[in-house]
Each structure stands twice: as C-alpha cells, then as structure tokens.
Write a protein that binds this DNA or RNA. Structure first.
Lengths: 332, 332
DNA sequence: TAAAATTACGCAAACGATTGCAGGGCGGTC
DNA sequence: GACCGCCCTGCAATCGTTTGCGTAATTTTA
C-alpha cells in the first residue's frame, strides 16, 4: 500500500541501498543512476519513512517542546518561532503542556524522550537537580533558566526589571510591591532579587505571592494590594498585572491614579488593556528560535564529551504606556 | 546505552517476546513471570521504544495538528485541549503552523503523514478537493469545515451570526457591513451567507474583504468602513474586530456611538479591548477535544471500508458587551 | 597498456520492537 | 494410563531504512 524503498529499487532496477544513497549521499552516485532513482521515486510518489530511518540512525528529527501553559499568550509566539525554525532544519515539534505542574513536566520529558532528539523546556517549573538528572537521558535546552552544562536562552529580565523600578522611583514612588509568580520560576527569582536590590533603601518593597501566573490570581491579589498601602506594583507577568488592574478597578482603586502597575512580557493583551499596560518587552520569538538552534547545535556532535552547551541572553526593555504615573499626593 | 527489550529479557531470564507480551498482553502471561519481567524492567528503567513499535505495528501513536496561525489567540485553547485529550489516550501531538498559506498546509500534511496516525486540520485554508485527495493517504479530521466522508467538528457559527445580526437589527441598525476573513475559510462562507440571508430586505449589507484575519488588516479596513456609511459591522473574528476598533478610534469614529462592532471567537482579547467587544462565543477547547476523539475513533477500525466519519456540531452564542449600541441618530 | 587507485554499487546485518507459529508442560477426561 | 487440549513461552520473520564491507567497474598513473 505505501511505497517503500524496495519498490523504488525495483522500479529503478537498482539495489535498495542505492536508493537510500540517492537521498542521503547523492554525490556518491553516478549522476545518471541518481537521476534514474530520483525519477523512479518521483514516479511512485516515494517518501522515506522517518520512523524506519529513526530506528537505524538513532535520530528522529523531532524535538519536544514543553511549555507551562499554552494558553498563556506569552508562549504562542515562542512556539510559532520555534516550529518555523525547526521546520527550516527539517525537524518537527512535539508540543506538550505541563499545566504549570512540575510533576507533569517531568513525566512529559520521560514520555517524549524516546521519540525526540532533544527537548526544550520553556520556563521550567522543575528543580535544577532534576533537570540535571533528566539531561543525562536526553539533551535538554532551557528557556528562561540558566544552568551550567545545559544549553539555555534567557531573557535579560534583570535589566528590564531594573529600568522598571528606576522608572517608578523617578515618578516618585516610595512604597512598592512585587506580585510574585511561581516559586519555581527562575524569572521570578531574578525579578524579585532585582526589585529588592534596586529599591534597596530608596523604597520599601512588599512581596505578594507566590501566585499562579494567570488573570484570576491577579484579580484575587488586588485586595491585598489595596490594603498594603503601596503606590506602585510590578507583577511577574502581564496576566497577573491585567488581572490585578481589573481587581483594583473593581475595588474602586484607580490605575494609575492611585496605584501604578507594570507587567512583564508585553503580550498582545498589554496594548489592549485599559489603561494600556506599561510592561517589559521580552523577545519571545527570538527565544524560541534560539532555543531550537542551541539544542540542535548541542546534539550535533555525536560524542557526548565534546558537547558544548551554548548560552544566549536576550535583551529586554521597558515600554511605558498608561498604567504608570506619579503617586497620588505627589502633586500636593 | 539505552536499555532495550533484550536487556530486560536477559535480566528476567526470559525471551524478548515474553517481555513484549508482559506489556502488550499481560493477561496472556503467568502472573509470576509477568511480575518477574515487570520487575526487571523497572529495575533497568526500561521504556519501550515507540519508534520501533511504530515500525512493526504501523501505528505511531502520534497525531498531527495543523493550525493556520498559532499566534491567533483562537487556537491556543484548542491546541491545549487537544493535547490533553491526546495524552489521556497515550498519543502525542505534532504541532505545525501553516501561516495562513494553503500551500504550506498541504506540504505539512505530506511531511507529517509518515509519522502520525492521522492529522487534524484546523480551520483549513485548502480546497475540499485537495483535502479529499490528502485523506486518501492519511486519516484526516477537520475543525471548522464540513465534508462528506471526513470526520469533522464545526462550530455552529450560523446560529451565532444569526443572533448577532438580529441583535443589530433590534438595536435599529439598517446599514450593515461584514468584514470578511480568508476566502478559503469555511466559517467565512457560513457567516457571510448568514449575514445576507438574515439581513435580507431588513437591512443593506456591504462586504469588505477578503482579509487576513489579524489586527493589522482590521486596522486598515477602518477607513473603508468609515466611508461606507454603515452603522454596524460584524467582523470575521475578534482580531479583525479589534484592529477595526483601533482604526476607527484613530479616525475619530466612536464605537459604539457612531458604529457598532461585533467579533467572533470570544478570545481573551474581547474582554480586554475597550470598549469591551460584543462577540460570538465559540467552544474552541471542546472543538480540540472532539477533533482528536473523532480522529482516533475514525482510525480505530483497521479495515478502511468500515470506517465511519463522525461529525459534531458545537453550539455558539452571542455575548453582548460594550461595542454595540443603537445607531447614531436613532434618538433624534 | 598494465597496475594502482578510486569509484559505484550490491550484499546483508543491524536498529528495537511485534506476532504467527509451534513445542513443552500440565491438567482433565474417558 | 493414554490422549486431548489449553496455557505458557520460545523461535524467527518482519517492519523500512542505513551503512560497513566487499567486489566489479572505471579512471588515473606510470
């Protein structure tokens, strides 16, 4: 029913191995036989079986791509870019959604391991130690996490958070809050540290969290923010920030009149929200592309000892919109 | 390096075939040997190779999932649901992004065909005839397209569009516009027809398009809308609607004061946009789940003749928010 | 033009599982 | 107590490629 290499061999009156070579090492064939084979293949509509090929070569030409939550608008552009990059190199992408759960995440790399050449973990929620262990079984590349010996791409959120806080300080804010994300998130740690170190003795900072990074959690935390007596807040991501803004609006707290809000990611939502959200732009698409590049580059060398784990750090920047303003009584 | 069925066989002192059976047909084994094997497998950390298994059985336990544009917020919830549904049945998902291009879409199913048991085409942009041809090579399930002999799930957008238009008519609008989506989109055809048939002699309807279904296109079309002298518009999807609203705002046209706008999909964006977008809610997640269910059910029977292509139609409904109001001089 | 070097291609053994077939052991029946 | 049948497990072919090895064919070199 399906046409195999053997059919092509018969059609072209050569041996299977010659057909195989016509595809994988064309230059080792006499031009006329190569043409004869390719012609026969075309005639029969032959497509090599990637499965069979994978079995002998040990390379599936597939990549696993695990994200915390596909529905979080932070990820789709990254997935899209990664998928295109992979395809350009004749790779295909398995997508899996870990539902923000470390256990599922771990399980997923195990499940995928046998049918991919490597997996990229996006914003992983699992511990470094476990990643280390997993990466002994299968090449792993990380997005938004940094680990020695593991290829990774991070977004320089420290830089972004620094300018964000400086922005708030310049506006005159002295009582800040950080609405934290998931505890296991590397980005969360980075931002949190930066907020503290930049504010230092120039402003107080209250931390609220950890939170699941979605709008609901943001909405819920609004109450605590209102009571915390802060005039500005940086949220772990846009989703939390937007939920928070809704929550505050709901409580009659004006943004940015009473409280300024800054998000992170610059997802589509940020421009749309009212007030338009001041946020930190992160290059998600670039991250997706770089991640598959690094992974492929890492898996390229066959002897494991020689493997070199590249790292790339992507710049971020603050985009000021309408959700930030001077604190309430700064005019008085 | 990797542990194979042979290693387990040696460890458990049985033949490979016994190991194989311990997994695929446990009941055919004496309990003690089964335990012995499973125990050995566990000790060695054995995981069957899905690749090798695929080669003999002919079933990869993978599904291809092709969407027009991952970055369109319409798709992520669908992908997420589909991925979860697939995983629950021990299937994995290949995601591919066709970039709204029929040629790429066709190419993708070809590329994926050899390593999946079937592919679901979401909101396909390719012609029926071609789908028909493709589905001879590989089982296909459709989302938002209906074809005899091909499993499919559609969202009853006719129902949704009807109520949307009725809503506008009730508000008093008499000059309507439909901002069309991609020509090849089945949904687009459905909506367009419905708009005409419902409006009929109760209102005029201008069609603008086709358009690529993104915000940019919506923004661009604003000018034409402003000039068309219409008081209400239904857009092919939320993206177009939101872009249009921005464009109108930019031209000093008030929504909904001067022009009412309705979208389709109820993506996250609809609630966030200002004014909040009146739109047609479509059950994307259900569609994702149903699609893989139908596909798997379709591929279940081995003899092709007996295959039966199921179809499910999912209900939609209008959610009225702030982007619709009576036409301008209805008060005068 | 014969020997040497190279090239082109066939042969067959993998890769890691599944599965129809068959044989050995054991219990039940007459 | 011999025979029949079932249950359990081993044997080996198979899925569709790749690839090291060898040999025949061709080209290069002297």
């Amino acid at each position: 029913m399906v046409v195999t290499i053997k059919d092509v061999a018969k059609e072209a009156q050569v041996h299977m191995s010659t057909v195989s070579r016509a595809f994988s090492m064309p230059h080792r064939l006499r031009p006329e036989t190569r043409i004869k084979v390719l012609e026969a293949a075309r005639r029969l509509g032959y497509r090599p079986s990637r499965v069979a090929r994978a079995l002998t070569t040990g390379r599936t030409h597939n990549i696993g791509f695990i994200v915390a939550d596909i529905a979080n608008p932070f990820f789709p552009p990254m997935i899209k870019a990664a998928e295109h990059a992979a395809r350009a190199r004749d790779y295909h992408l398995f997508i899996a959604d870990a539902s923000e759960d470390p256990a599922i995440e771990t399980e997923l790399v195990g499940a995928l391991a046998k049918q991919v050449d490597g997996v990229v973990l996006c914003a992983p929620r699992i511990a470094n130690a476990k990643i280390e262990r997993l990466s002994e079984d299968i090449p792993i590349a990380l997005v938004n996490r940094k680990m020695a010996g593991v290829p990774s791409v991070t977004m320089d959120v420290v830089q972004g958070a620094r300018t964000a806080i400086e922005h708030l300080l310049e506006l005159g804010h002295r009582r800040l809050a950080y609405v934290a994300g998931p505890r296991q998130s590397w980005t969360n740690t980075q931002i949190s540290r930066t907020v503290h170190s930049v504010a230092e003795d120039r402003a107080s900072v209250t931390v609220l969290g950890p939170n699941t990074p979605n709008e609901n959690a943001g909405f819920t935390v609004a109450d605590a923010i209102a009571r915390a007596g802060v005039t500005a807040v940086l949220a772990y991501n846009d989703l939390l920030a937007i939920g928070l803004m809704e929550g505050l609006h709901n409580l009659g707290v004006d943004v940015p009149g009473d409280v300024s809000v800054i998000g992170v990611d610059d997802t589509v939502l940020a421009r749309l929200a009212r007030p338009r959200l001041t946020t930190i732009v992160v290059p998600t698409a670039d991250a997706g592309t770089s991640a598959v590049d690094l992974l492929l580059q890492y898996t390229a060398s066959d002897d494991l000892a020689a493997r070199t784990a590249g790292h790339v750090s992507l710049p971020t920047q603050l985009v000021v919109r309408d959700s930030t303003a001077p604190p309430p009584n700064s005019a008085s």
